[in-house]
Amino acid sequence: HVKTLSLRDNNFTFLPECIKELQFLRSLDVSGCLHLQEIRGVPPNLKEFTARECISLSSSSLSMLSNQELHEAGQTMFCFPRGSIPEWFNHRSRGPSSSFWFRNEFPDNVLCLLLARVECLHLDVIPRLKMFINGKRHKITSRWGGSEVRKAKLNYTYLFDLKSAFELDDLSEVALEKEWNHVEITYAGLIETSLFKATGIHVLRQDDIRYDDPYGKRKLEHDLNS
């Protein structure tokens, strides 16, 4: 059964719909396929997809790569040119950081999205990031190495599952100081600020998750009632 497939630096213009029949395929790389316009199907268990320098991809193909059901199934790490933050994402930001609040346990499925301009970088499968919980930096380690350096002045979308892309220190030992605990994911200081386009966070579990500051709201209510 084919689990990994590299079609890099080819001249084809479309991936046929029959690629969906590769049910065991987990990793697909079409980087450098400058003439690739259409992706007509996505294998059902695809987890890692890389499309560096695929400058001809159609809007419909980019939309397919951002499919909600595909990414909510978990463990995805996708990189493709252009794109936008999908409407189904819980939280969107124009700055280098996105955040959410949780209570009880840290959620299992956290999807992160970064839109950024890549000019000439060591091409990591997923970008480096920093994570803070209640203002304290939490140690994380990338599970993936990089590839060769290429000059590619393009906007890219990175869409990835946090726990699949990074190894997190034992979250059960995190000192949860409050009822609601603040998580900030930021790329500030790791990528030049002028290259950021947008960031996003999507947490599959909706119970005990918030995207507004619960303490800020309570403070406002207290001020109004005092």
Rank of each mutant, 00 (worst) to 15 (best):
H1S: 13
T4L: 09
N10C: 04
N11A: 14
F12S: 07
F14C: 07
F14R: 14
E17Q: 11
E17V: 09
I19H: 12
L22Y: 11
L22G: 00
L22T: 01
Q23T: 01
F24Q: 14
R26D: 02
R26W: 10
L28Q: 00
D29G: 07
S31L: 00
H35D: 10
L36Q: 07
Q37V: 13
Q37H: 09
I39K: 07
R40H: 12
R40E: 06
G41D: 03
V42W: 10
P43D: 04
N45P: 06
R52K: 11
E53N: 15
C54K: 01
C54L: 04
I55V: 13
S61I: 01
S61K: 05
L62G: 11
M64G: 06
L65I: 04
S66D: 00
N67F: 11
E69Y: 09
E69A: 11
E69S: 09
H71P: 09
H71A: 04
A73G: 08
G74T: 08
Q75P: 04
Q75R: 15
Q75D: 13
Q75G: 10
T76V: 04
M77T: 03
F78H: 05
F78E: 00
C79Y: 07
F80I: 03
R82L: 08
G83H: 06
S84Q: 13
I85T: 00
I85M: 01
E87Q: 13
E87R: 12
F89A: 06
F89T: 06
R92W: 11
P96C: 10
N104P: 12
N104T: 13
P107W: 12
P107C: 07
C112H: 10
L115C: 04
L115D: 04
L115M: 13
V118K: 15
H122I: 13
I126T: 10
P127R: 04
L129Q: 01
F132W: 11
N134V: 11
N134P: 09
R137I: 13
I140F: 04
S142C: 14
W144P: 06
G145D: 10
G146P: 13
V149T: 13
V149F: 15
L154N: 14
Y156S: 04
Y158P: 01
Y158M: 06
L159M: 12
L159C: 02
F160Y: 15
D161S: 15
L162R: 02
K163A: 05
L168D: 00
L168P: 01
L171F: 10
S172C: 12
A175N: 14
W180M: 08
N181E: 05
N181H: 08
N181M: 01
V183M: 00
V183F: 14
I185P: 05
I185N: 04
Y187Q: 01
Y187C: 11
G189A: 03
G189K: 02
L190T: 01
L190V: 03
I191T: 00
T193I: 15
F196K: 05
T199P: 05
H202N: 07
V203A: 09
D207P: 12
D207I: 06
D208P: 07
D208R: 15
I209G: 13
D213W: 03
D213K: 03
Y215Q: 08
K219A: 09
L220D: 11
H222K: 15
D223C: 14
N225Y: 14
